[in-house]
Structure formats: structure tokens, C-alpha cells
Amino acid sequence: MSRVVVVVGATSGIGRVAAREFARRGDRLVLAARAPQTLNDVRAECAAEGAEVLVVPTDVTAPGALAALADAAVARFGRIDAWVHTAAVTAYGRFDEVPGRIFDQVVRTDLLAAAEAARVALRHFRSTGSGTLVLTGSVLGHITAPYLSGYVAAKWGLTGLVRTLQQELRDLPDVHVCLVSPGSVDTPIYQRAANHLGLVGRPPPPVATPERVARAVVDCLARPRREVSVGRLNPLMRVGFTVLPGLYDVLVGPLMRRLGLADEPAPAHDGVLFAADPASEAVRGGWLPDVGHLLRTAAALPASAGTRLLRRVR
């Protein structure tokens, strides 16, 4: 029997790739994000894979929105087997220079909305006795970096929340809570970030593909794990942060300024924190070459060249 999977944050990055992969596996999908038009685009992508899809435009920070999303899923499909929550925003700036409303909105979106999603999903799973909740954390839920205080605070909070939930659910062996914690990922979150630092943010290397992280998310439904780290340097950074905190603090600032920020100036702006921007919603952020696209293009070149040659012969 196909699973019923709710994917929140389905219009860009990791969530969009995960939705496509669930569709390929024959799951029935409930897709949620803020932008209705982009949601419809993703629905078409998943329907092309043969999936039955319900889209529910949802602002995760709106009171009652996630409960309404769950109600819509149950009304359409009768149950929820898995809930994948990937919605996130970020903001650049020194803590004392970031407006309070910006900091609060990052925490509201990345931590409090994720907590509400967990509350809604777990109530449903407790009533049915089974289900899997996948939340997307970050390596910045275990270490810190300057100029990202709201995001770091939210992801640390999310890490603590997940551990608590895992402890509280020990009486329900068929209910699972998984945390997928990537390092830098090639998604548009950096371009979509609020900025009060004056410089454009970018993902410090090494940068993973959203496809790699999405595979970890999808795999959690088949093999639930407490936490999955995605990123070659994540373990090293966590060890340095814990074992050599003084040295870590000396190095992290210069490394962030050199690798995590571009020389390109950025005016102060709110990014997508308070309103969706459909034009910026995509799978990739453009920080890595799309190898799949390059391979498909290369594979098409001989056929294209052959067609042109035939036309000339004729």
C-alpha cells in the first residue's frame, strides 16, 4: 500500500526534491508551502511521476495553519503515514544589528513552526499507533557561526526538541522522530535570506547537493534513525567545537568572512521571511554545477549533431 506523506516546504530545495522522490516511489502526497502557483508547479512534477497529489497553500507561522493542513490530508487520504518538515528561513547580520522582528521571525519559522508540526503530526501518530516525523536540522544545531544568530538559536532548539521527543516516544515503538542535519547545501536559502550585514551570504564549502540531503530524508521513512548527518566535514567541525572551543572561536570568524560571505554588497532587506517570492523558489541555488543536467545535455549532443548532419545531407 502506498504511503501518505505530508511535505512542508515543498516548493524549493530539499523539500521539492524529496517530494519528487516520494512521487517516484508511488506515495500519495500532501504538499504545503506559501506560494500557490509554485505549489501547482510541484504538483505537476509529482503527478508526472504518477503520484496522487493534494496541495495546501500554508504559511507555517500562521496560527492553526498546520492543524488545518493535517485535517486536509486526513480528509483527502484518510490518514497520514509520514510528515516531512523542511520549511526554513535565515538572516545574516550581527545579533545586535539584526532587528528584533527579523530574529523573531527566523525562530518562529525554523523552531516554533517545526514544533507545531511535530505537535500536530505526533498527535495523529499516537492515535494511529504508527508514523514517521522527519525534521530538517543543521550542523549549526551542534556548532555555532557568527552572523547567523537566529538560525543557530533555532536549530539548536530543534536539536534539543527532537532528542526530547525521542525520549518521550519510547512507549510507541512504531512512531519515529528523525532529524536530518546537513551542512552547506546548494539551495536558494542563501539568496532568499534576510540581510542586515551588508554582504551577500553564500554556503561555505564543502557544499552538498539538495538531492543528497533529500535521499537521506526519504530513506528515513524506510530506515528511521535518530539523526542523519549529511556533510563530509560535519563530524570534524563538531569535534573542534567541543574539544577545542578556544581554537574554534579564533578560526570560525575569519573562515566565515572568507568562505561564508561574498564581496558583493547587499542592502538591508527582509528576504522571504514575511512573504513568499515565487520567482526565487527552485531546487538549486546555483552554488554547484548541476551534474545531472550536464550529463543529460552531453548525452543529447550526439543525437543533436546527427540531426543537423542529416539536415545538411538532405
Rank of each mutant, 00 (worst) to 15 (best):
E168S: 04
P188E: 12
I143Y: 10
D81Q: 04
F95R: 10
G9P: 05
G150I: 03
L179E: 15
A222S: 13
S130Q: 13
V56A: 04
G240D: 03
W83H: 01
A266Y: 04
M256I: 01
V175C: 09
Y151G: 02
L179H: 11
R101Q: 08
S149H: 12
E211L: 13
V250N: 00
R16Y: 11
R223E: 08
G253Y: 10
V239M: 13
R223C: 01
A115P: 01
V152H: 12
A300T: 08
G100D: 13
L261M: 12
H176A: 09
V84D: 06
T11I: 01
S229T: 05
A87Y: 10
E116R: 15
R226M: 03
Q37F: 06
A214H: 10
A276T: 11
N195S: 14
V55W: 05
G198Q: 10
R170V: 12
R212D: 08
L259Q: 12
R212V: 07
A10D: 12
N40G: 14
D171M: 02
A51S: 10
Q105A: 11
P204D: 02
R226W: 07
D59C: 03
P206C: 06
V200Y: 03
G64K: 03
A193H: 10
D110S: 10
D249W: 05
E264I: 10
D59Y: 01
V5H: 11
G198T: 08
F125C: 08
R212K: 13
V250E: 14
P182T: 11
L140Q: 08
A275F: 10
F103P: 00
R314Q: 14
A300L: 13
P235S: 07
V162Y: 12
S12C: 08
V74G: 01
R3E: 04
V177G: 01
V107R: 14
R225F: 02
L69V: 00
A208I: 00
L247G: 02
T11F: 06
E168D: 15
G131T: 09
R24Y: 03
P182I: 06
Q191G: 15
R202H: 04
T90P: 00
P173V: 07
W156N: 00
A88T: 07
H85D: 00
D290C: 09
V175S: 03
R123V: 11
V185H: 13
L295V: 15
A44K: 11
M1F: 06
N40K: 06
A275K: 14
V218M: 06
L169Y: 15
G26D: 04
S280V: 05
A72R: 15
F274Q: 10
P289E: 15
V250I: 09
A68W: 01
R170D: 15
R3H: 09
A62H: 11
A113Y: 10
P254C: 08
L310N: 07
G64H: 04
L169R: 02
G150M: 02
G131F: 08
A276G: 14
G286C: 11
L244I: 04
L259M: 13
L294H: 12
F77Y: 14
R284D: 02
R79E: 01
V84Q: 05
T297H: 09
G129Q: 10
G137A: 05
